[in-house]
Design a protein around this nucleic acid. Structure first.
Lengths: 97, 97
DNA sequence: TGAACATATGAACAACTGCTCATATGTTCA
DNA sequence: TGAACATATGAGCAGTTGTTCATATGTTCA
């Protein structure tokens, strides 16, 4: 990457990182990294309301960071791809040094 | 990374990514990636005020993403380490697929 | 020392964000 | 179909964020 990416790409880039820049969302991504979970389970494990989690999941879904799999009444969420876990790790690596 | 990091680490992680979650800051990091630059040069190349850039540089410096090297009146900024460029790349890779 | 230049900083304000509360939508099963 | 459960959504609000404007601090050189 020797040249400056154009504005549109840089904007997408910052929008992408913005998603990781919130404690609740990072927690959601972390728990989903370990287990496929439904909304209420995520809410319980983070001690937050179902509504708050649902709102955040919508964003995460829009940004293609998580996917949902419906099974009857409940929807199981998980990380959209391995890339996401890699990005979490890269940040953690940076923190823990 | 098989276990959930504790709250403090996750908080640092989200704070860390929050820095990348702003267009101005991402642009600053990108131009610094290519050249060591002084404040006014960054401002010029991004078409922004010296003040706005200076405020953001303070944050970037506090978060250890950039370092300043004084030479007379001017201060030359550059990325703090190679890790930062790697994180930008990881995001770009994700965007451009 | 004082003028000129480079950068930093504080206050103020508009825009954005994430939560809550109430309620809607979707699904199952008797 | 209707009750019970799981999730989604919209409005409203408080807290946060990024910029501007004015000004302060720091450095050089005559």
């Amino acid at each position: 990457m020797s040249k400056m990416p154009n504005d549109e790409v840089l904007n997408e880039l910052s929008e992408f990182y913005k998603v990781f820049g919130d404690l609740t969302r990072v927690k959601i991504l972390c728990v989903l990294r370990m287990n496929e979970l439904c909304v209420q389970d995520i809410a319980d494990s983070l001690n937050m309301t179902q509504s708050a989690i649902s709102h955040q999941l919508r964003l995460l879904k829009t940004m293609s960071l998580v996917t949902g799999r419906r099974e009857g009444k409940t929807i199981y969420y998980s990380l959209a791809d391995d890339h996401i876990a890699g990005i979490l790790d890269m940040g953690l690596e940076h923190i823990l040094e």
